[in-house]
Simulated scan of single mutants.
Amino acid sequence: MSSAGRWGDLGERLGVGAAMAVVALICVWVGGWLFTAMTVGICAVITWELVRMLDPEAPAMRLGIVVGLALAAESVLPTGYALLLLAVPVFYGVATINEHRLTYALYATLIQLAGLGLIFLRLDDGITWMLWLALVVIVTDVFGYVFGRLIGGPKMWTRVSPNKTWSGTIAGWIGAAVVGGVFAAILGVTSELVPISIVLSMAGQVGDVAESAVKRRAGVKDSSALLPGHGGLFDRFDGMLGASVLLLLITPLIGFPFPVAG
């Protein structure tokens, strides 16, 4: 592949990525209802994209709205009621679509859990930990993209994701470790933040590969064409989906968030 072909989409990716980053940073900084609204909207759009890939004949817009409304309600309900409500979009979707029902059920559950995890992280633990998680996922993605194309080498899983290389994958882990080390040093928290950052990086990569498997089964390159140079929101937030769900699940085990010095 020529240099121009290898980096031909970089300018467009950077421009759209910068615009997305500005909007996301504003929402993260303000927090509250604005961050919740952004998260609910993203989860609704991701569901719409997912359903369009799984079953083009299904009412994707309606299912996206159902997931968004359910997530908005779950974010303010007591935990028990929220967990019960989480099942509503799952069963409604299974009864509505005709193809790949199990895949939909799994993703509809994970999308809601990821949304709840992000909302609770920002509202309960503050902007610092939200930025840490976001940077772990972003740096993993950026390092994987840049170093995977610079170094190349053996492919990680050609049948599912033909562009993923082991060099990019390992570079993503290293980038996440750096993010964890920097935050641990600045905040004065335990060095365990470094391996935890690597584990979340891996979870993000699993989310990326899982979405690639869905796209390959659907025979599409991108989840949608909403974001020039990036594809759809699912393409951009697949890593955050995996990382945020894992963080939500392991939080009781690791005693997160860690006490901040000072």
Rank of each mutant, 00 (worst) to 15 (best):
residue 1 M to D: 09
residue 1 M to P: 06
residue 2 S to V: 00
residue 3 S to W: 12
residue 7 W to A: 10
residue 8 G to V: 02
residue 9 D to H: 12
residue 9 D to Y: 00
residue 11 G to A: 14
residue 12 E to T: 15
residue 12 E to Q: 15
residue 13 R to A: 01
residue 16 V to K: 02
residue 19 A to M: 15
residue 31 G to S: 08
residue 32 G to K: 12
residue 35 F to V: 04
residue 36 T to K: 12
residue 43 C to Y: 11
residue 44 A to W: 09
residue 45 V to R: 06
residue 48 W to S: 03
residue 49 E to C: 11
residue 50 L to P: 05
residue 52 R to N: 13
residue 59 P to C: 08
residue 64 G to R: 03
residue 65 I to A: 15
residue 66 V to S: 05
residue 68 G to V: 03
residue 70 A to D: 00
residue 73 A to L: 14
residue 74 E to Y: 03
residue 75 S to F: 06
residue 79 T to L: 15
residue 81 Y to T: 06
residue 82 A to L: 04
residue 84 L to V: 13
residue 84 L to C: 09
residue 84 L to E: 10
residue 87 A to V: 12
residue 88 V to A: 13
residue 88 V to R: 01
residue 96 T to I: 09
residue 98 N to S: 14
residue 100 H to T: 06
residue 100 H to E: 14
residue 101 R to L: 10
residue 102 L to V: 14
residue 103 T to D: 08
residue 104 Y to I: 07
residue 107 Y to A: 12
residue 107 Y to N: 13
residue 107 Y to F: 14
residue 108 A to V: 08
residue 109 T to V: 13
residue 109 T to M: 13
residue 111 I to L: 15
residue 112 Q to H: 01
residue 113 L to W: 14
residue 114 A to D: 09
residue 116 L to D: 07
residue 116 L to V: 10
residue 118 L to C: 08
residue 119 I to C: 02
residue 123 L to V: 12
residue 126 G to N: 10
residue 129 W to P: 08
residue 129 W to G: 10
residue 129 W to F: 14
residue 129 W to D: 12
residue 130 M to S: 13
residue 131 L to M: 12
residue 136 V to S: 04
residue 137 V to S: 07
residue 139 V to H: 06
residue 142 V to Q: 08
residue 147 F to G: 00
residue 151 I to D: 00
residue 154 P to I: 05
residue 158 T to G: 05
residue 158 T to N: 12
residue 159 R to N: 11
residue 161 S to T: 07
residue 161 S to Q: 04
residue 161 S to P: 13
residue 163 N to Q: 15
residue 170 I to H: 01
residue 172 G to T: 02
residue 172 G to W: 05
residue 173 W to F: 13
residue 175 G to L: 00
residue 177 A to P: 04
residue 179 V to N: 02
residue 180 G to I: 00
residue 182 V to W: 01
residue 183 F to G: 04
residue 185 A to Q: 07
residue 188 G to K: 02
residue 190 T to Y: 07
residue 197 S to K: 00
residue 199 V to K: 10
residue 199 V to N: 00
residue 199 V to Q: 09
residue 200 L to N: 06
residue 200 L to Q: 02
residue 202 M to A: 15
residue 203 A to I: 08
residue 204 G to H: 01
residue 204 G to K: 09
residue 207 G to V: 04
residue 209 V to I: 14
residue 211 E to H: 10
residue 212 S to V: 05
residue 214 V to Q: 11
residue 216 R to K: 08
residue 217 R to D: 12
residue 218 A to H: 02
residue 219 G to V: 04
residue 222 D to M: 07
residue 228 P to W: 09
residue 228 P to S: 04
residue 231 G to D: 05
residue 233 L to I: 07
residue 235 D to F: 10
residue 237 F to A: 12
residue 240 M to Q: 02
residue 240 M to P: 01
residue 246 L to D: 00
residue 248 L to I: 05
residue 260 V to I: 15
residue 261 A to C: 07
residue 262 G to L: 00
